[in-house]
């Protein structure tokens, strides 16, 4: 918008707002959403510093300082939760984006229209399956006594595997299920970005004798860089937030797997709901938000140092 600004000196804020009123109007629903769900509940974080009871309410309950954080640190739980949450999300972000880009490029190279449509739809579908259902499907595939996988192993004369007591297997299972669910959907964004690349670049490359691989390497991939960076930055903002539905439905209350599968969300859920423990869970939530905030700021700062245009703000 500043490109069309021909007057001298900075405009007043009101003037700027008036100039963009249509755009602002279009943002109103999103602004209201964030105010209602993200800003208005902020004072509630005070619970983390109190010994909360319903009668005195959030601000009337006795103040206890950092006592609620103490246990989390003492038990080492905070470290396990942070590690699991970050590692899972890193795996999701890195593997997810690589797979999404690969699939978008492959789709772009496919010439058979019906096959392109069919494979796109097939990859898109898992995104719409509720994680409750995914949990049930996983149990029926993987359980020891009646699961499909173990039935197959038994039929072929092998010894069935106790998957629901092998904590080590679950990072792999969860990452695979997550990728299965999200890759098709995520590849759409990259596919759209590829569609937006100037066709003349490809023509020029072809004229210069570039092979299909070279076109991908020197035209497609560099053009996807801004999209990639923005998506990764967004994803980093959520790195402290896990895919609760998926984790909860796959693992549930199976304490044998917590060491490798417990993330901040599932732990908070258990604390509030089965242990009725609002204060400690709010403390975890607050820690999660502050840590996530710091992470986004740092990542954005680094990106801005490298290339200002790629930074979010």
């Amino acid at each position: 918008m500043s490109g069309t600004d021909t007057s001298r000196g900075p405009k007043s804020i009101w003037r700027q707002l008036a100039d963009s009123k249509v755009l602002l109007l279009m943002c109103v629903p999103a602004i209201i959403f964030f105010i209602v769900f993200n800003y208005m509940p902020l004072p509630g974080a005070w619970i983390a510093f109190t010994n909360f009871n319903y009668r005195d309410g959030i601000f009337g309950s006795p103040f206890v300082g950092f006592k609620n954080f103490e246990f989390l640190i003492k038990s080492g739980q905070l470290w396990t939760l942070t590690r699991n949450t970050i590692l899972y999300n890193l795996a999701f972000i890195v593997l997810g984006n690589i797979l999404q880009i690969a699939i978008a490029i492959m789709l772009n190279e496919v010439r058979l229209a019906w096959f392109k449509k069919l494979s796109q739809a097939a990859m898109f579908l898992p995104f719409f399956i509720s994680s409750v259902l995914v949990g049930v499907i996983a149990f029926n595939l993987l359980n020891y006594d009646t699961g499909a996988l173990n039935a197959l192993i038994k039929q072929t004369g092998g010894d069935p595997i106790k998957i629901y007591s092998s904590a080590g297997a679950w990072p792999l299972i969860i990452i695979m299920v997550h990728l299965w669910q999200s890759t098709g959907y995520g590849s759409i964004v990259y596919f759209a970005a590829i569609m937006g690349i100037d066709r003349s670049l490809y023509e020029a490359a072809t004229v210069d004798g570039a092979s299909a691989w070279q076109r991908i390497r020197f035209v497609t991939l560099p053009s996807l860089k801004p999209t990639f960076i923005i998506l990764v930055l967004f994803a980093l903002g959520g790195i402290m937030h896990g895919n609760f539905g998926l984790f909860w439905n796959l693992v549930g209350n199976n304490a044998a797997l917590f060491q490798t599968t417990d993330i901040i969300e599932t732990s908070v859920y258990r604390m509030v709901l089965s242990q009725n423990n609002f204060t400690t869970s709010t403390a975890v939530g607050l820690y999660q938000s502050l840590f996530g905030f710091a992470l986004v700021m740092t990542a954005n700062w680094i990106v801005r140092r490298i290339n200002k245009d790629y930074a979010l703000f």
Binding site: V64, K67, F71, S75, A255, F258, Q275, T280
Partner: peptide, 16 residues
Amino acid sequence: STLAAMAGVLSEYIPQ
């Protein structure tokens, strides 16, 4: 808060 913390420990060990 101690009871809540104990709940966390118990719910990890007792079911197993």
